[in-house]
Each structure stands twice: as C-alpha cells, then as structure tokens.
Measured scan of single mutants.
Amino acid sequence: NQESVVAAVLIPINTALTVGMMTTRVVSPTGIPAEDIPRLISMQVNQVVPMGTTLMPDMVKGYAP
C-alpha cells in the first residue's frame, strides 16, 4: 500500500508547505504520494487543510501529478 501525504497540523489557506506540516499515512482514497514531499515544500495550499486531512493534488497550487 502506498503512503499518501497527510496534514500533520492545521494548514491555513495560502500557506507555503514545510516538512513539519506534512506526515504520511496509508489512506483511502490515496492522495499525493509520500515521495512527492520534496516537491511540495514551498508550494501553497489553496484551501484550509485540517489536521489529518489527506492532501489531494487539487489542494496544492501548481502541483501536477
């Protein structure tokens, strides 16, 4: 099972992602793959992401799977 990126904290809208904001977990449905965390650093979320929420591609500005 592939791990997906999950919010480790509440991430406010338009916040640039940092390593500490993200964790990984096997979830269903799957979100952004864990191995993409290095690509996500400094990208901004386009909505509020509650802690424990799986990051989906459409939540991150400029992210393309």
Results as ranks from 00 to 15, higher is better:
residue 63 Y to Q: 05
residue 35 E to F: 09
residue 60 V to R: 00
residue 50 P to E: 09
residue 33 P to H: 11
residue 61 K to M: 07
residue 38 P to L: 11
residue 35 E to Y: 13
residue 15 T to N: 06
residue 52 G to K: 06
residue 44 Q to K: 10
residue 4 S to R: 02
residue 22 M to Q: 01
residue 38 P to W: 08
residue 11 I to W: 01
residue 57 P to Q: 08
residue 18 T to Y: 06
residue 27 V to Y: 02
residue 56 M to I: 07
residue 29 P to T: 07
residue 22 M to N: 01
residue 63 Y to S: 03
residue 29 P to Y: 07
residue 11 I to D: 00
residue 24 T to R: 14
residue 38 P to D: 15
residue 22 M to W: 03
residue 5 V to W: 02
residue 26 V to T: 08
residue 60 V to G: 01
residue 30 T to S: 15
residue 32 I to G: 00
residue 55 L to F: 13
residue 13 I to A: 09
residue 65 P to G: 14
residue 11 I to A: 00
residue 24 T to C: 03
residue 40 L to E: 00
residue 27 V to I: 07
residue 43 M to S: 06
residue 65 P to W: 03
residue 20 G to Q: 15
residue 34 A to L: 04
residue 19 V to Q: 07
residue 18 T to Q: 14
residue 40 L to A: 01
residue 55 L to S: 01
residue 15 T to M: 13
residue 3 E to V: 12
residue 8 A to R: 09
residue 8 A to E: 06
residue 7 A to M: 03
residue 32 I to F: 06
residue 26 V to F: 06
residue 50 P to K: 06
residue 41 I to D: 03
residue 64 A to T: 11
residue 61 K to R: 11
residue 51 M to L: 05
residue 44 Q to I: 08
residue 12 P to K: 10
residue 4 S to V: 03
residue 26 V to S: 11
residue 56 M to C: 03
residue 19 V to D: 08
residue 38 P to C: 03
residue 57 P to V: 10
residue 37 I to D: 01
residue 7 A to I: 02
residue 24 T to E: 13
residue 37 I to H: 04
residue 65 P to R: 02
residue 19 V to P: 09
residue 16 A to P: 12
residue 38 P to K: 07
residue 52 G to W: 08
residue 10 L to Q: 15
residue 10 L to N: 09
residue 11 I to M: 06
residue 56 M to P: 00
residue 48 V to T: 13
residue 15 T to P: 00
residue 48 V to Q: 14
residue 30 T to W: 07
residue 16 A to Y: 13
residue 3 E to I: 09
residue 34 A to T: 06
residue 40 L to C: 03
residue 22 M to V: 10
residue 26 V to L: 12
residue 41 I to Y: 06
residue 57 P to F: 08
residue 37 I to E: 04
residue 55 L to Q: 00
residue 51 M to P: 06
residue 21 M to N: 11
residue 15 T to A: 13
residue 11 I to G: 00
residue 6 V to P: 00
residue 22 M to C: 03
residue 17 L to F: 02
residue 65 P to S: 10
residue 34 A to S: 13
residue 31 G to D: 01
residue 1 N to A: 14
residue 50 P to F: 11
residue 11 I to V: 07
residue 63 Y to N: 04
residue 61 K to W: 08
residue 6 V to K: 02
residue 47 Q to P: 00
residue 29 P to I: 07
residue 43 M to L: 13
residue 8 A to L: 14
residue 6 V to N: 02
residue 58 D to C: 04
residue 54 T to V: 11
residue 44 Q to L: 12
residue 39 R to M: 11
residue 45 V to K: 00
residue 32 I to V: 08
residue 6 V to H: 03
residue 23 T to R: 10
residue 46 N to I: 13
residue 17 L to Q: 01
residue 9 V to I: 06
residue 47 Q to A: 14
residue 14 N to K: 09
residue 25 R to S: 07
residue 39 R to W: 09
residue 39 R to K: 07
residue 32 I to W: 03
residue 39 R to N: 13
residue 56 M to N: 08
residue 15 T to C: 03
residue 60 V to I: 12
residue 60 V to Y: 02
residue 49 V to S: 02
residue 50 P to D: 07
residue 57 P to D: 06
residue 43 M to E: 10
residue 13 I to M: 12
residue 7 A to E: 00
residue 7 A to H: 01
residue 56 M to D: 05
residue 63 Y to L: 07
residue 44 Q to V: 12
residue 41 I to F: 10
residue 3 E to S: 11
residue 54 T to Q: 04
residue 27 V to H: 04
residue 64 A to H: 11
residue 28 S to C: 04
residue 45 V to W: 01
residue 48 V to P: 11
residue 6 V to T: 05
residue 59 M to S: 03
residue 30 T to V: 15
residue 35 E to L: 14
residue 65 P to H: 05
residue 58 D to Q: 14
residue 40 L to I: 13
residue 40 L to G: 00
residue 27 V to Q: 12
residue 12 P to M: 13
residue 56 M to A: 06
residue 18 T to W: 05
residue 42 S to K: 13
residue 46 N to V: 04
residue 4 S to Q: 02
residue 13 I to K: 15
residue 16 A to C: 04
residue 28 S to K: 07
residue 21 M to I: 04
residue 19 V to A: 15
